[in-house]
Structure formats: C-alpha cells, structure tokens
Design a protein around this nucleic acid. Structure first.
Length: 561
RNA sequence: UGGGGGAUCGUCUAAUGGUAGGACAGCGGACUCUGACUCCGCCAGUCUAGGUUCGAAUCCUAGUCCCCCAGCCA
C-alpha cells in the first residue's frame, strides 16, 4: 500500500447527513444502515464522484453499515462494459470494498416491469402516443401549467395491452412511452406525468437484446434502493426536485422498504471541469490523451499522475458536506497532495533543465559514492549511495550572471553546497554565440565532503545535481491546470478556456540511477522540484516521469516582484 | 415571473440563543544540507434592513443575490 498517511480520527465527522444517520440509528428507525454509490457506466469516474464514494462508503463504514456499488445502467445507448470495469478499478483503488459483487439496476428490469404494470392497474400510468416534441409542448413551461395528453384516459386494459406490445417490440423507437399519471399542473415539472419507459433498440451491456424498453432514472432509482434495502440514498442537489417523485413511487408501489433520499452539494473544482459530458468531449476531441491523461480530474488521471488515494480521501473529508454550492480552489487539493507526499515520498535528485557543471580541481578519473537520506520526514528513513564525479548536471536556473544579493545559488565567486556532496565556488562560465550558458566551472573544497566544512563555514544555498557519467536520461512531463480560467466557460465557450500550456514535455532530463527502479504511479520527490512518478509509458530504455505536483516555491514568488 | 434549494474571511468550513473558531490562499518573520518541511505572527467574514431577547450567524418579518428544474439523460 502507498497510503502511509492516515488522518482519520477517532470521532466520526459531523455534517447534516451523518447527524441524520446518527439520529435514525438512535431512534431505532434502523439498526443497520445501507447506502449505495450508483454510477451510470457511461464514462470514467472523476473527483466529484470521489466525493460521493467517500460519503457513501465512508458513512457506511463509520456506522457499521454497508454500501452497495450499483450500476445505474438504464440507458444502453450511452453505456459500455469498459466503463463498468474502469469504475470498479477506480473505486477499489480509492480504498473501498463492496462485498461479493456489484449490483445493477438492470437486474431489476423484470421487477420494474411488473411494477409498471401495477401502476397501470391502479390507473396511475398510461401509454402515450405523443411524440417527444409533442410531449414537450404539452408539458407547459416553468410558469404555465401543462395540458393533458389525449391518451391520458385510456383504459387499464388498453394500457396493459399497449405496454406489453411495447415490450415485445411491436412499435418503433420513440413511437410510444409509458407515463405516470400525476399532475400536469404541478409547479414541480417532474410531476407533470413523467415518462417512465421508452423504447430503445440498442444492445445493453448486460441484458443484450432481451429488452427494447427501458425504465428511466426516476422509475429505476428509488425502486432499486428499496429492493436493496438502502436506508439513506445520498445524491447531489440537482435531484432535490426529483425527491417528490422518488417518494411517489415508493408510496404507490409494493416496494419492500422505504428508503429516504438526502441531497448534498456537488464538488466544483477551479481550473478544471467536472461533468462527464465535458470530460467525454475532451477525450473524444483529443484535447487530452485519454480518460487517464494526468491532467484530467478523473480518478484514473489522478492515479496516473501519482496522487495517492489517501490524499484524495483526505481532501474530500476536509471539504465537509453541506448544501451550499461552492467552488473549491485547486490549490487546496494540491496542498493536500503535498502534505501526504511530503510524508511518504522518498527523495531523489533529478535535473530537468540541465547545464553542465565542471569541477576544475576534481580528478577527471575519480568517482566516489556519497550517502543521501531517502526521506528526512521519516526519522527511520534509510539512506542510499549517490555517485559523484568531476562533471555534473545542474539546473540551468541555478546559475545567474550578476545575481542579486538574495540569489543563493551559483554566480561568480559565490560558494554553494552540492547537496550531500561538497562546497563549490563558481569560477566562471562559457557561453555560446547566443549568450546561453553552456558550461559552469567551479572549484570544490575537498574538506567539505558530505556537505559540511570542518571549519564551520556556512554556505548560503544548496543545489541538487546528477553525475553526468552516471545519469539516466528521461522524458519528464510537467503539467499545469487544464484550464487557464478558474471557471471554464464563464466568460466564453469553455473549450476556449483550455490552457494551451497545460503540458510541458522535457525530453532530455537527467536522473540519478536509483530512479530507474521507481514504481509506476508511486510519487517520489525530486529534491527542490516537486513530486514525480513513473508513467505507464515508461520503458527501461525510455524512462518517462510525470510531475504530480510541484513543491512550494517562495523564491519564484519573490523573484517576480 | 411557477416549483425546489442556498447565502459566515479571497476559498472550503465550525459555532445547534451565550467569546464568530479552524484549514487553504495571501503577507511578514524564524529555522534549514531541499528557497521544501516545520514553527511563529499578521491580514480577513456572519447578504441587507427592521424586529424579538440581558444576549442573535442562529429566532421573526420584509427584501437582495446565487444555484437547480421545461430529456423518451442520469
């Protein structure tokens, strides 16, 4: 496991939903609570889903209840088996378990069909021949009531017959629907005779072509909850309007239980988008390399980028649960990731923008091994040996001509420390015709081996390095916000807010050899730079790393002033 | 303008009639073999107007602003 930071406390968190659960347990309404996470398998999970996952599974765990993973697979036109697999991988990776097997709304199709017939029998549902467009017209508007369909008063027998014939495929797609008979004048538009079943001839990922009529969300969700004995059905705010309909089905159908729906505010994150529709578009239009592109806010993207699952869980728990709709700053997530990685990530040295540094008074044929600590945040951390020699790679921006006083790095006549190695003093540089530094020259103090001078002399800065003769070459991919604007689409079309510089590929970086062994997806810290992990694209002869997140850089801030 | 929700530092939140507190961000400092980490300090908020009360973020009244709903999507 990669999760070394577990910030869970003894006491369970307090929010309006947990308070409700606690009260229902104390009053004896339930002695065992059941929640569920019900994704539609029409895309990959993103960090917004992670909030729902952490809430549903988290609450079940905290109160010794159970949480079902249930696929809401009621629309075969949009769903795919591949998504079913990816979703399970993501939920598992996030650290949650759903027992024997996942549930599927499609497992209840037969029951749902019988319940639809029950509704018809009660005079509470009817088959409508109106077209989709006509239904929309008859529905009325937000301020005007709707009008009754001419087919609203069909007899029970005729409705039963028509519905049965819908099922066996006598009618074309869209020709007829089954509707609930509720109230065409309701202020809540969901109650204006909502459609319950529609005809869709499209193979279903699980039921194949067994059906050509499918229940929609409203007719499947609450009933599925009831069948599974869900006690607390937690969903996002936009379903508040659906709750009266959810309850209407529970009241009018012979369901085995009475689940209750509670709504919480969905997660909005700055500088990205969190809607499956938009994420799908980013993938299908190749604005990103796929659902798991490390710039994507998907669970798989975050995983590929090197974000630990524990950091995601912690981030979610820090947000709390409320009904207010807000926009969380990306820096909040980044901070949480850094906090976890600072504890867990091993340190290594790597140079991303290399320039040669030559130590003039170091023997050309000499190599020595220096000891470097792997994780100073862990007092039990072990160490590793790093090869040192006359020619090193250092970071281009660790040298500056005519540097200001505050510049604690290489500049003529200034002494700095090479981390874990020696004090060196810059004696000069060579440049090409364009004025770019091609080589930095230094002298070193052999007495300072290991990084400290016996005379107690202090040095103002420490820079990282990699021995040129020993370095491994790698491609390193740096990521920035996917969107340049905090709220994509606020001022113009959301795609225009894409950040053109979200991906910065450095093809020739130099790493200390130990990094060749780095485990895919597990972040290590490149000292002074940030957290990085091996990408799945990486090969022994073509290493590829992703930057998970940079280190805080107060020098960069100071420099800009 | 029908129905349903929501408003507390820049951001996310706590306070359930009794000192408006925390975290992130920002700013300043200390420390440092990572300009990281850590530590210290500072900045900053109850949507508005009335009312009830010894006392109001919390209760009442009237406003204001924001979000969601007119799919045979979920």
């Amino acid at each position: 496991m990669t999760d070394t930071t577990n910030t869970t406390t003894d006491e369970t968190p307090h929010d309006f939903i947990r308070d409700r659960v606690r009260a229902d347990l104390e009053s004896g309404l339930h002695d065992h609570i059941v929640t569920r996470f019900p994704p539609e398998p029409n895309g990959f999970l993103h960090i917004g889903h992670a909030k729902s996952i952490c809430l549903n599974f988290g609450i079940a765990n905290e109160f010794s209840g159970t949480c079902n993973l249930r696929f809401d697979d009621t629309n075969p036109a949009k769903e795919d088996e591949a998504y079913i697999r990816a979703i399970q991988d993501d939920v598992r990776w996030l650290g949650f378990d759903w027992g024997d097997k996942p549930f599927y709304a499609s497992d209840y199709f037969e029951t749902l069909y019988a319940w639809a017939c029950h509704l018809i029998g009660e005079g509470l549902a009817y088959v409508d021949d109106l077209s989709a467009e006509q239904i929309r017209e008859y529905r009325g508007t937000l301020t005007e009531p709707g009008t009754h369909s001419p087919h609203r008063e069909r007899s029970v027998e005729e409705n039963l017959d028509l519905f049965a014939r819908m099922r066996v495929g006598e009618f074309e797609d869209g020709a007829r629907v089954l509707r609930a008979k509720i109230d065409m004048a309701s202020g809540n538009i969901n109650l204006r005779d909502p459609v319950l079943y529609r005809i869709i001839r499209h193979p279903h990922p699980r039921t194949g072509d067994a059906w050509c009529i499918y229940p929609n969300y409203d007719f499947a969700h609450g009933q599925s909850d009831a069948i599974e004995g869900v006690t607390h059905s937690l969903c996002t705010l936009e379903f508040e309007d659906h709750r009266p309909l959810y309850n209407w089905f529970l009241e009018n159908l012979p369901v085995p239980a009475q689940p209750r729906q509670y709504e919480f505010g969905r997660l909005n994150l700055g500088h990205t988008v969190l809607s499956k529709r938009r994420l799908l578009q980013l993938v299908s239009e190749n604005h990103v390399a796929g659902w798991d592109d490390p710039r994507m806010p998907t669970v798989s993207g975050l995983r590929r980028r090197g974000v630990p699952a524990a950091a995601i869980r912690d981030f979610i728990s820090r947000l709390g649960v409320t009904k207010a709709d807000g926009l969380v700053e990306m820096s909040y997530l980044e901070n949480t990731i850094r906090e976890h990685l600072n504890q867990s990530a091993e340190r290594r040295m790597a140079v991303l923008d290399p320039v040669k540094l030559v130590i003039e008074n170091y023997p050309a044929d000499q190599t020595e091994e220096l000891e470097a600590v792997n994780n100073p945040a862990d007092e039990n951390s072990d160490t590793r040996m790093v090869s040192f020699s006359r020619e090193l790679w250092v970071e281009r921006d660790d040298y500056m001509d005519d540097a200001p006083k505050k510049f604690r790095r290489l500049t003529i006549d200034q002494e700095v420390r090479l981390r874990f190695a020696y004090f060196v003093t810059c004696t000069g540089v060579t440049k090409d015709d364009a004025g770019n530094v091609t080589e930095i020259r230094c002298t070193y103090d052999p007495e300072s081996r290991g990084g400290d001078s016996p005379d107690g002399r202090k040095v103002r800065g420490t820079i990282h390095w990699v021995s040129a003769a020993h370095a491994k070459t790698a491609e390193v991919r740096l990521y920035d916000h996917l969107f340049a604007e905090e709220e994509p689409g606020k001022e113009r079309d959301w795609l225009e807010d894409l950040n053109p510089d979200s991906l910065d590929v450095r093809s020739t970086c130099y790493l200390e050899p130990a990094l060749q062994e780095a485990e895919t997806g597990i972040a290590v810290q490149f000292e002074r730079l940030g957290y990085f992990c091996t990408d799945p694209d990486s090969r022994p002869d073509g290493l590829v790393f992703n930057r998970t997140v940079g280190l805080r850089d107060s020098w960069a801030k100071a420099k800009d002033k």
